[in-house]
Design a protein around this nucleic acid. Structure first.
Length: 257
DNA sequence: CGTGTAATAT
DNA sequence: GATATTACAC
């Protein structure tokens, strides 16, 4: 029975990701060993195409001393507003958050603004979500249309958009259904204590912010030499942290089988 | 003003 | 090739 829809929502709302509790979307991915284990960085593969993405300097500190430099250097102004942010890289993890948000919002409320707010990912803009949502919807549509008996996918053909999306479990309700009068989703129990059991790696400070001025790495501060590595040439690896096929870390009971 | 979608640009 | 951006409809 559906409990008060408002009820689960409220409960879930309480556990909304607070800045302090935010999931470390900025996982450091792949340890050196892991990298070798795969193939990236081994052999002849200049291990460095990865210097993009995230990290936001503690913008909070005496905010007075940074106003003008010489006109020689383009000021990498702090992400105040209306600045060209670097291209958003939709990592599987980020996409997962996206899917999670959409799943819990229900198709009805799954609009860019709401999704963006519930993802609580700093730096994410409405257009970011809108753009991604557009593609994601097309992806879902495509899948629904092609529910042919091909148990094993691989045929169908156009893995243009699918790659990223395939890395994330797609809640069953995402299919096209006409809404039933009001709202209908399942009273899922969201887990809030989303903590990853990581080893004490080089996890500098726990920053929850996303991307930084990527293209122009010119920060006046002494950034830690840690470069959040990411699946380089080999694309993204599935959530290795989650085990691989264990629904241990997954947010909610999605991929139920 | 916010959204959905297609086309187009970077 | 993946995202962003634009244009237009609603």
């Amino acid at each position: 029975m559906r409990e008060d829809e408002a009820n689960w929502f409220s409960k879930w709302e309480q556990q909304l990701p607070k800045p302090e509790d935010l999931i470390p979307l900025n996982q450091t991915l792949i340890t050196p060993d892991l990298a070798i284990a795969f193939d990236i960085g081994t052999s002849h593969n200049p291990i460095n195409h990865n210097r993009f993405q995230q990290q936001q300097p503690p913008s909070i500190s005496t905010p007075s001393s940074q106003t003008e430099f010489d006109s020689s250097d383009l000021n990498t102004d702090e992400p105040a507003r209306t600045l060209k942010r670097p291209r958003l890289v939709w990592t599987p993890q980020l996409h997962k958050r996206f899917v999670d948000a959409v799943a819990h919002l229900g198709i009805k409320n799954a609009v860019p603004k709401t999704i963006m707010q519930l993802m609580s990912v700093d730096g994410l803009t409405r257009e970011n979500v809108a753009s991604h949502l557009q593609k994601y919807r097309l992806y879902l549509k495509r899948m629904q249309g092609l529910s042919s008996g091909t148990g094993t996918f691989g045929s169908g053909g156009d893995p243009a958009t699918d790659h990223l999306f395939a890395s994330s479990p797609v809640p069953p309700h995402f299919l096209h259904q006409s809404v039933h009068g009001a709202d209908n989703f399942l009273p899922y129990m969201p887990v809030s204590a989303l903590q990853q059991q990581h080893h004490h790696q080089q996890m500098a400070n726990h920053l929850h912010r996303q991307f930084a001025p990527v293209g122009l790495s010119r920060q006046t501060n002494q950034s830690v030499p840690i470069t959040p590595v990411r699946g380089g040439g080999g694309s993204y690896v599935d959530d290795l942290d989650s085990g691989n096929e264990k629904k241990a870390l997954t947010l909610f009971p999605i991929g139920d089988d």
